[in-house]
Nucleic acid binder design. Structure first.
Length: 998
DNA sequence: GTCCGACCGTA
DNA sequence: TTACGGTCGGACG
């Protein structure tokens, strides 16, 4: 190597992480091997080797090496034990790519360098300084800030993904200090990702300012007493040692012992066939062609080389908790199922391969796709001997599908009328189904036409005999119970003293597999997977006026309906369960979905007390207020009309009164939404203001104060909502009848409703809510250093955003500036568009565009994140949460641009909203065991969940003990499955009503 | 009776 | 700009 030579040092380890997040996911066609980073790496290398001159580097390398980390154990770990301690395991798809990129490097005939005990950065530093000393030039192919300290007039960095060269001015522009001060700057700011402590509360801005003033870190520390700001002075003095330690951690070593001298890194000629053999193995068709053209080889005669792959992934997907044995349900029955239920034909056709999850799922789907339903095989069980036999058969096969028939859709009020079972026999039978099903009527009444009606129908097993047997079956952990929407049956049976154990829920399995592709109710699933439209409930029990409760349904008709439900449920399980393993979603189902079912059932069963007197008093006040407004509205309008009719109101405002500024809804009606009315009110019109006020009062009255008392349970005197586990696309829960997730909180008037939600006598309500959980998730998934740092430092996140974007200091910031930043932050989570933001902030579209542009400049990781989610949704048809929950977007490739844009925004939002939902799910699952371990499991009762908030009812004396446990479970909910890059924060408060606790 | 759109409450 | 559920009016049969 001599003066004028040019050494390229490629940061191989850095590239793979960066490429993984920045580039669209890509898998090898033949087997799904993830190869996105490998592809990016090969393309980048090829470009550098062939026409680096045309990139922003502008020169061709004479020497080149690719550098890797040897392992995570380095000398830094000896300096500081916690260094990189909170690094989580790399994403599953990355694992095989580490090895592949090394193999790619060798295929390119390039030296592949790693040294035990040192990071790639140290090796790069050593080579860079050596080359510089000889008089050569150096380009470090990386954009990692940790390498910026190496930049000199002769050493540049190159961000290959953005094709951007980084020199001294670029470092100064980005960090406010020249490269040689980067070490001091990083020593002060620390790095939460690598666990470099730094000085708390000092970010890059402050650090740069201090360095400008004091010159370097030592001087600063020596003269720290001169710092004017009291708080800052104190933390710097207190953390001087941490800063010195941090400096040693971030300072790169330039004395790494190297086997290959810098002269040996000379660029060799490419071996075309060798490279093509590798590229073909990776199935990179276009790069293979380009390489073949360049070296004038005939790619078609070159065989793909054998590339060993370390997959590093279990068939069931990631295990989400390492410290806990996997919950076992259905291991044995799965096998029983395989060997018996698939009709003989499907077995033969698929041969041995069917024992692989994917081919089993495939063959099951085909076997059941249109297997006919034979109702004549359904029986009614009316005697104990037959019932006992069926239960024995269920024990024998270890698997039974069941369904309850009741008098109500409300599991808290329903009475058990009968139950059905379906069993898969161990019989070889090629002529028909191998599933048999039966209905056990228990409390059917005599016909309702009977004047003496109400008596029990004849020939039913008495409840007192049947119930103990049903209990024994449902509580028997050696038998897997399968049901559709089991939470209903679980709660119902719990009220009869039965706690169902070892279960699967076909609705939840479908939800985990196919969220986003349609409903997960039994009827749609049956049509979709079994090609069968089930008997409609209303055809059995009637509808409308002639609707009867199930106990009045004729037992023969009931048998057809009920037994069919159990039959369908078992078939759905056969089809869906193997897909979990085939699609690597078992862990999501077993860790996030199934265990939540009993937790929610218990919450629903507990209910919450609402004070009916408070509500009725509020109703009176609201009625009065609304009546007064009505008079004024009619006077202003000059006529009486139905204020609640948007159609009539639109005619009055924009027709009769001829107000300007109206917009139309998509059906062509005048829009009278609150924002339209607010605009008119701001323009000086009285009527719209009154309408807005009237709407608020009547909304509160009709939706809350009038409706809630109707949900008070006659026996428990409490309100029992119902949570749906499977009705959102993102993994959130929903609440209905009543919806307790939309109780007002924003206005003072609305909050009064919350005062009616009270703790039982001698108890308090504790409300514990996550602070900014979605923005924290965003910081984590998109790797936004400023956000991560701000959360680590406990800084006001919206103010920080405003400060970054508008250059306004946090202290004394006008509230309007912060408000805008806040709207932008939320916009980002929602998949921002200039149109949406301009609406939200009532500003021009062009101004909103500028904001977004500036945001992306300030936080470039955000744009990368958004692009990568869109790309993933397009490539794979789904995106996923940090715990692997999958959300499908079948319409992401729609030719309709607005449909497509909508799906893209949703695909950006879903991983954020869904990851937050997964986190609180984990907290809920862990809550009862944690409280029990502390000895207060039976005295602290979780009642409600409102997306980022949990509400508990606790005996007065236990509040002090319970609160820190609740907070800790919530804050640590992601662990140990996942170490987040940002801390989670939970605020908790206790009071006698929900308003004061919140 | 049942369905749909408009509107509005929550995170 | 994301995700929900409930109430109302009004049109349909």
């Amino acid at each position: 190597m001599k003066k004028g030579d040019h050494l390229f040092l490629v940061d191989g380890s850095g590239f793979i992480f960066r490429a993984f997040h920045a580039l669209p996911p890509l898998t090898r066609k033949s087997d799904g091997l993830p190869v996105g980073a490998v592809s990016g790496f090969c393309n980048m290398l090829w470009k550098l080797l062939t026409d680096a001159r045309d990139t922003s580097v502008g020169v061709t390398p004479t020497h080149l090496a690719v550098i890797f980390d040897y392992s995570s154990k380095t000398f830094r770990k000896d300096l500081y034990d916690a260094y990189k301690a909170n690094r989580s395991a790399p994403p599953e798809e990355l694992i095989p790519q580490f090895g592949l990129i090394r193999q790619a490097t060798r295929a390119f005939n390039l030296p592949c360098i790693e040294v035990e005990g040192f990071e790639a950065d140290d090796i790069i530093a050593t080579y860079a300084r050596q080359a510089e000393a000889i008089g050569g030039d150096v380009t470090i192919v990386s954009s990692d800030k940790d390498l910026m300290q190496l930049v000199t007039p002769n050493v540049h960095m190159y961000d290959s993904m953005k094709d951007k060269q980084i020199g001294i001015p670029d470092v100064v522009e980005k960090w406010g200090v020249p490269p040689e001060k980067m070490i001091d700057l990083q020593a002060m700011t620390g790095d939460s990702v690598d666990n470099v402590p730094g000085i708390p509360g000092i970010g890059p801005k402050t650090a740069a300012q201090l360095l400008a003033e004091y010159g370097d870190l030592d001087t600063l520390l020596n003269r720290a007493t001169e710092i004017k700001q009291e708080k800052r002075r104190q933390t710097i003095i207190e953390n001087a040692d941490k800063a010195r330690l941090s400096r040693e951690l971030v300072r790169l070593r330039t004395d790494v012992p190297l086997e290959l001298a810098v002269q040996d890194l000379v660029l060799e000629k490419q071996d075309g066939p060798k490279l093509i053999g590798f590229l073909k193995a990776m199935q990179f068709t276009s790069l293979t062609r380009r390489v073949a053209d360049a070296c004038e080889c005939d790619a078609s005669v070159i065989d793909a080389v054998d590339v060993p792959v370390e997959w590093g992934a279990a068939a069931h997907g990631p295990d989400l908790d390492v410290d806990k044995p996997a919950p076992v349900a259905g291991g044995v029955p799965d096998i029983v199922g395989d060997s018996v239920q698939v009709p003989a034909k499907a077995k033969e056709a698929n041969g041995e391969g069917m024992f692989q999850p994917a081919s089993l799922a495939q063959s099951r789907a085909e076997a059941f796709a249109s297997l006919p339903f034979d109702h004549s095989r359904y029986i009614t069980i009316r005697d104990l001997a037959t019932l006992d036999q069926w239960i024995a058969d269920a024990r024998q096969t270890g698997l039974v599908a069941f369904d309850t028939e009741t008098t109500s859709l409300d599991a808290m009020q329903a009475e058990l009328v009968g139950f059905s079972m379906a069993i898969a026999d161990n019989a070889k039978n090629s002529t028909g189904t191998t599933i048999r099903a039966a209905y056990v009527p228990l409390t059917h009444k005599t016909g309702y036409g009977d004047l003496l009606g109400g008596g029990l129908a004849d020939n039913q097993i008495p409840m007192r005999d049947a119930l103990p047997r049903l209990k024994a079956l449902l509580e028997d952990a050696s038998v897997l119970k399968v049901a559709q929407n089991l939470k209903y049956d679980y709660l119902l049976m719990k009220r009869y003293g039965v706690e169902t154990r070892n279960f699967d829920d076909t609705m939840l399995i479908s939800y985990v597999l196919d969220a986003g592709t349609g409903a997960h109710g039994m009827d749609p699933l049956s049509e979709k997977f079994l090609g069968h439209k089930p008997i409609a409930y209303k055809d059995v029990a009637g509808s409308g006026k002639s609707n009867v409760t199930f106990d009045l349904v004729d037992i023969d008709r009931a048998t057809h309906y009920a037994a069919e439900d159990a039959d369908i449920t078992l078939r759905l399980w056969m089809v869906l369960k193997p897909r979990l393993a085939a699609e690597k979603l078992t862990a999501v189902y077993e860790r996030l979905e199934r265990p939540l079912l009993p937790v929610l059932a218990h919450m629903e069963e507990r209910g919450i007390t609402v004070d009916r007197q408070i509500l009725s008093r509020l109703s009176g006040e609201l009625a009065q207020g609304a009546a007064a407004l009505e008079d004024e509205i009619f006077k202003l309008a000059g006529e009486r009309f139905t204020i609640g009719s948007p159609k009539q109101l639109g005619d009055i405002l924009f027709g009769k009164m001829g107000l300007a500024g109206g917009t139309k809804t998509k059906t062509g009606q005048w829009s009278t939404s609150a924002s339209v009315l607010e605009d008119l009110a701001a323009a000086g019109f009285e009527l719209p203001r009154k309408i807005v006020d009237w709407r608020q009062l009547t909304k509160l009255k009709s939706t809350y104060t009038d409706a809630l008392p109707g949900y008070v349970h006659p026996q428990t005197k409490r309100v029992h909502t119902s949570y749906s586990l499977a009705s959102t696309t993102t993994g959130r829960l929903s609440s209905s009848e009543p919806n307790l997730q939309n109780i007002p909180v924003r206005t003072a008037e609305g909050r009064k409703i919350r005062t009616a939600f009270i703790a039982a006598p001698g108890h308090k309500l504790i409300s514990a809510d996550y602070s900014q959980i979605e923005l924290r998730v965003l910081a984590h998934v998109a790797h936004i250093p400023q956000l991560t740092q701000a959360f680590a430092d406990g800084i006001d996140i919206h103010a920080m955003t405003a400060s970054e974007m508008f250059g306004v200091p946090v202290e004394g910031m006008p509230s309007e500036v912060r408000r805008r930043a806040k709207a932008i932050n939320f916009g980002i989570i929602y998949g921002i568009s200039a149109f949406g933001l301009s609406n939200q902030l009532s500003i021009e579209r062009s101004e909103a565009s500028d904001y977004i542009k500036r945001y992306f400049e300030r936080f470039p990781g955000i744009r990368d994140y958004m692009d990568s989610r869109k790309q993933m949704a397009r490539d794979k048809g789904y995106v996923e949460t940090i715990f692997g929950r999958r959300i499908n977007y079948p319409e992401i490739r729609s030719s309709n641009p607005s449909v497509r844009a909508f799906n893209e925004r949703a695909a950006i939002n879903a991983p954020i909203q869904g990851s937050a939902a997964d986190i609180i799910r984990r907290a809920m699952i862990k809550m009862e065991p944690a409280l029990s371990e502390a000895g207060i499991g039976d005295r602290v009762r979780m009642l409600l969940q409102v997306h980022d908030e949990l509400i508990f009812e606790v005996e007065d004396a236990d509040v002090e003990k319970a609160t820190p446990i609740i907070v800790s479970v919530m804050e640590n909910a992601a662990m140990p499955a996942l170490e987040m890059r940002v801390p989670l924060k939970v605020d908790a408060r206790a009071a006698s009503n929900w308003d004061e606790a919140h």
